[in-house]
Design a protein around this nucleic acid. Structure first.
Length: 311
DNA sequence: CTATGACCTGC
DNA sequence: CAGGTCATA
């Protein structure tokens, strides 16, 4: 790794820019901290700092103004509207889905401005392979460790070094011990490498091509990779592939569904059958934007049973 | 088709 | 037990 090529800088010396967006329709803390992305952290001054597609970014909201800086530059000129999916009509979603269900409506009112992101498919796959039976802080530390170990150094800014996300080719058998121990991934290390080897062997651009497929096809492609089950496939579909009808069913969503919508489910465990019944129920209720309803209800539940340090 | 256990750590 | 998955019974 050519560490010398990464410069030392301070945020203050970097140019800052801004754009306007109504604050009730964009809440950075909830959007970047809700567990769909793992490389953002909040500073004491209220900046969110992260690395996306090889660029270091910092961003914050002041009223309806969104300020940001980027090094060496934005991933592309239209980055923010793309990454934050600012073209998605959140207000319409609130009124249309809110009218269908009082619980959804309440979650929209509690967490206005929570948005789903459009993240990099390969990074999202890699990240969510680390989430199995794991907690958000530990996932974030593992991903940070992987980036420091195998990601391209970008810069040191205000005494913090930033690295790109490791490419799929990095994940070979030799690094399993490092993943297990240094990155603290435990048994997930083996699953991660096994999956990434399979992905690296796919035709170039495989992960990005999933976005152009219908949801069912993309999901099946993802699940053809060993260690990617229904939950991870749906997380990738929803957080990276624009598949708004994807409904990741985790323990939180399962509890919500059994409590509010499907009391007749008696199975103790989350079988494939139960998983599909819950996800289908969300789609019956909320249609092609079921994943948004899922995210709001999930986040409400997570905050009620506060097991995350984010907020 | 369902249920159970194993898999690494730590809060 | 945690924002699961796979193998086995």
């Amino acid at each position: 790794m050519p560490l010398v090529s990464a410069p030392t800088l301070s945020w203050a010396e970097l140019p800052h820019y801004s754009f306007e967006y109504p604050s009730p329709l964009l809440n950075l803390r909830w959007t970047l901290g809700c567990g769909q992305a793992f490389r953002w952290r909040e500073t004491a001054e209220g900046w969110w700092v992260g690395v996306v597609r090889g660029c270091v970014l910092r961003v914050r909201s002041q009223g309806d103004t969104v300020e940001y800086a980027a090094y060496p530059h934005l991933p592309d000129p239209g980055f923010w509207p793309d990454y934050l999916r600012l073209d998605f009509d959140l207000e319409a979603m609130y009124s249309e889905l809110g009218a269908l269900d009082p619980h959804a409506r309440a979650s929209f009112e509690s967490w206005p401005g929570l948005r789903l992101l459009r993240q990099d498919p390969t990074e999202t796959i890699t990240s969510f392979l680390c989430t199995t039976a794991n907690s958000i802080p530990r996932i974030a530390r593992a991903i940070e460790g992987m980036s420091v170990a195998w990601g391209e150094p970008i810069a040191t800014i205000d005494d913090r070094s930033y690295h790109g996300f490791p490419t799929a080719e990095v994940f070979t058998e030799e690094i399993i011990p490092t993943l297990e121990r240094d990155c603290n991934l435990g048994y997930r290390a083996y699953n991660l490498v096994r999956a990434m080897e399979q992905i690296a062997a796919k035709p170039p651009g495989w992960a990005n091509s999933l976005r152009a497929m219908p949801y069912a096809e993309a999901r099946a492609e993802l699940m053809s990779v060993r260690s990617i089950g229904p939950k991870i496939a749906d997380c990738v579909s929803l957080f990276a592939l624009d598949k708004d009808e994807a409904v990741p069913v985790d323990t939180h969503v399962r509890q919500i569904a059994l409590e509010l919508y499907l009391p007749e489910i008696t199975q103790k465990s989350l079988t494939t059958n139960v998983y599909n019944r819950i996800a289908s129920r969300f789609r019956e209720m909320f249609g092609e934007r079921a994943g948004w309803a899922q995210e709001y209800l999930f986040f409400s539940h997570l905050m009620r049973h506060r097991d995350t340090p984010v907020l």
